[in-house]
Design a protein around this nucleic acid. Structure first.
Lengths: 192, 192
DNA sequence: CTACGTGTAGACCAATCGGTCTAATCCCAG
DNA sequence: CTGGGATTAGACCGATTGGTCTACACGTAG
C-alpha cells in the first residue's frame, strides 16, 4: 500500500518535477527543491548520488507516468479514438488553465533545458516514444490499422507540444482546446 | 550600408541569440556571451542597462527576424501557399540538421526558460503572433479567405513547434520533414 | 588645447550555484 | 541490550552567477 506521508525520495522527485516543469532545469536550484521537499542536502545525495542530474531523470519519469495516466483516463472511457483524443486535449487544457496558463510539457522543460548530454536526450526520446506508442495502442484498440494509428498518435503528440508553446505565450488554453479540430479529431471535422 | 565588422552591440545580440537557443536563458552565463562576442562587461551594461534580461529580449527579436527571413525566402518564391509551407519546413529541417539535430525554436528557448515575468511572456506573444500573421498574409496573397489563412498559419506554427520538440528528442529532422504531409500541405495529401 | 559624451575595459562584489564531508540519528537484526 | 547499515542533518567548500563601479580610451565640439 502507499503511505500517506510520501518518503523523502518521493517528495524530492515530486517537487523536483513540479519545479522543473515551471522553470526548467537550470531555472531551479537544488536548494529550492530541498526546501519544498523539506529534505536536507544529505538525503538528496544519498538517494541520487549524481545529484541534480539524476533527480531530473527521475522527475521526468514521474512526470511521464502522470501524463500517461491522464491519457489513460481519457482514452479508456472513450467510445472512439477521436473521442479519446478530444477528451485528452480538454483534460490537458484544464490542467494548463489551473497552472496560471503556464505549465507546458514537463519533459521538455526538465530535459531540454538541462545539460546537453546524451543521457538527457535519450531519456527524452524514450519518454516521448512511450507516449506515442501508448496513444497508437489506443488507436489500434479502436480498430485503426497499425501505421494509421501511429501517424495519428504522432500528430497528436506534435500538435500537443506545439499547442502548449502557443498557449503559454498567449496565456490561454485556446490552442489546446482547438487542437482536436485542427487535427481532424473533432466531430464533423473530416475523415476521423 | 552594413559594416563588415558588426558593432559591439550587434555581436552581443547575435551571440546571445545563438547561445540562448542552444542552452536556454538560464543555461547561459553572461560571461560566456561576453567571451564569444569578445566584449567586456562594461559594454553589455552600457548597451543593455538591465543586463541579461534586456539582452534576451533583443536576442529574441533578432532570432524572430531571422526566422521571418527564412519564411519569406520560402513563401515568396513559391507557386502556392502549400508549396511555400512545404519549402519552409524543409528549409528549417536543413537548419536543424546543421545544428547537430539540436536547435529548436529560438524564442521558446530564450524566453520561456527565463524569469517568468510579464515582459518575457508578452514578448513571446508578440513574436509568435507576428509569425502567424506573416504566414497568414502569405495565405491571403495566395487567395485563401482570411479565416482559412489564419487557421492554416496557426496549424503550421503549432506543427512546427511540436515537430521541433520531437525532432530534438529523436535526433532526426524526420518529424519536421513529414510536417507538410501531416498538415495536408504536401501534394496529393488532401484538400490543399 | 580643454571639455564632454560615448563606449570600452576589467577589477571587484555579494549571492547563489552544485557538490562534498562528517556527525548524528534512526531502525531493525542479533 | 549491542552492532551496523540506512538515512538524515547541515556545515562547509570552491566555482560561478549577474551586477556594480571606477578608470580610461576615443572622437568631436568649442
Amino acid at each position: 500500500m502507499t503511505s500517506l506521508i510520501p518518503s523523502t525520495r518521493d517528495r524530492l522527485v515530486l517537487n523536483a518535477a513540479l519545479l522543473f516543469r515551471q522553470k526548467g532545469y537550470h531555472g531551479v536550484g537544488v536548494a529550492e527543491i530541498l526546501a519544498r521537499a523539506k529534505a536536507p542536502k544529505g538525503s538528496l545525495y544519498h538517494h541520487f548520488p549524481n545529484g541534480k542530474a539524476d533527480l531530473a531523470l527521475a522527475a521526468a519519469d514521474w512526470a511521464s507516468a502522470q501524463m500517461q495516466r491522464v491519457a489513460a483516463d481519457a482514452f479508456e472511457t472513450a467510445k472512439s479514438f477521436d473521442a479519446g483524443a478530444t477528451t485528452f486535449c480538454f483534460k490537458l487544457a484544464k490542467l494548463f488553465d489551473l497552472s496560471d496558463h503556464w505549465d507546458g510539457c514537463p519533459v521538455s522543460s526538465t530535459l531540454f533545458e538541462g545539460p546537453q548530454n546524451q543521457a538527457f536526450r535519450e531519456k527524452a526520446a524514450s519518454v516521448f516514444s512511450g507516449w506515442i506508442d501508448q496513444i497508437a495502442e489506443y488507436g489500434r484498440a479502436a480498430g485503426l490499422p497499425r501505421d494509421i494509428a501511429r501517424d495519428r498518435a504522432e500528430a497528436l503528440f506534435i500538435g500537443l507540444e506545439g499547442a502548449w508553446v502557443l498557449a503559454r505565450a498567449l496565456k490561454t488554453s485556446g490552442p489546446i482546446k482547438r487542437l482536436p479540430r485542427l487535427l481532424g479529431f473533432a466531430p464533423g471535422s473530416g475523415d476521423g
